[in-house]
């Protein structure tokens, strides 16, 4: 066994070549290990202090280290004030004992939750197979927005959705930063992110905060807590003189990637209160082309976004 790296250059060096998978909190890697979807060697990042915590830059923007835990993002007072949609999303992820160890980087790079992918009993496009067994089988929790992929597993990262609503960037050691949506390719059925093996995500960079933003995160689930969303949405609005001047709306669990809903954003301009939300989301189902079992998600997407908007506009 090699000694775990203690700084970013050593971590990047250990990962180089792609033989070892990076392991942060381990919540996804260890679950995949059990199903034979991950295997040692791992490069453990827990000693890399430099990947942890939030840095505030002179322009007031924040840079969040990849090894910062989801719980830390949710609890950080300054992040909550500056990026309320991100903090609210982080607070809703998983459960307290998972948030305590799961990291920002791990959340962005986690693999999907499709039971066919997760089960060793099935082959699938993400495991080198040539068909998607979920598409022809059970896909009750599958995608409803078609991005051209045969795979129907929705993207699992709630933080990616929130970061998308902030136009955040993803920093990669030894490479140019990517916009969050550059980390994903919805038409690619073989993987859940496009980061090349051997690369290390070091953090996410948020733009300078927008003052006076109000935000809300909502997820539709069957139980009250501790459940992956059927649909999730996050909304940010900035108002001036009572009317919305800028809005950012994103949704998750509906497509192979998190989605920005730009048409909703445009329709919100000038909105003054929660009563304007319904009209702004009316066209959302038109984005959807449901699978046989995901028809419900078209209206649920619209209504989850509406719920988030009504709260953000309240």
């Amino acid at each position: 066994m090699t000694t775990p790296p203690v700084d970013v250059p050593a971590a990047a060096a250990a990962l180089r070549g792609g033989a070892a998978e990076a392991r942060a909190g381990g919540t996804d890697v260890m679950a995949r290990l059990r199903e034979g979807l991950a295997a040692p060697p791992f490069t453990d990042l827990h000693r890399v202090i430099g990947l942890r915590g939030v840095q505030w830059l002179p322009d007031g923007s924040a840079r969040i280290g990849a090894m910062t835990t989801v719980a830390e993002v949710a609890a950080d007072e300054r992040l909550r004030a500056a990026y309320p949609a991100l903090a609210a999303t982080a607070a809703a992820v998983a459960t307290p004992q998972i948030r305590a160890v799961a990291t920002v980087g791990g959340n962005l790079l986690q693999r999907n939750r499709c039971p066919y992918f997760r089960s060793a009993a099935f082959d699938c496009l993400q495991k080198g197979g040539d068909t998607c067994p979920s598409r022809t089988g059970d896909h009750l929790h599958g995608t409803v927005v078609d991005q051209g992929a045969a795979c129907v597993a929705p993207h699992p990262s709630s933080l990616a959705m929130a970061l998308l609503a902030y136009d955040a960037g993803v920093e990669v050691e030894g490479a140019a930063a990517l916009p969050v949506d550059g980390l994903y390719d919805g038409s690619d059925s073989t993987r859940d992110h496009v980061l090349e093996p051997g690369r290390l995500v070091t953090g996410v960079a948020l733009p300078a905060p927008t003052g006076g933003e109000s935000a809300a995160y909502r997820r539709a689930t069957s139980r009250s807590r501790g459940e992956w969303p059927l649909v999730e949405a996050v909304a940010r609005v900035v108002r001036s003189g009572g009317a919305v001047t800028a809005a950012a709306v994103a949704a998750g669990a509906v497509a192979r990637t998190p989605l920005r809903l730009t048409a909703v954003e445009e329709a919100l301009i000038g909105a003054t209160g929660p009563e304007d939300a319904a009209a702004a989301v009316a066209g959302v189902p038109d984005l959807c082309s449901p699978l046989p079992q995901t028809g419900y998600k078209a209206a649920l997407l619209r209504d989850t976004v509406r719920d988030a908007l009504e709260r953000a506009l309240a």
């Binding site: 381990g26 453990d44 827990h46 160890v101």
Partner: peptide, 12 residues
């Protein structure tokens, strides 16, 4: 801090 230990690598 409470943490789920069934997915936590012992090395951590």
């Amino acid at each position: 801090t409470p943490a789920a230990s069934c997915l936590l690598p012992a090395t951590a």
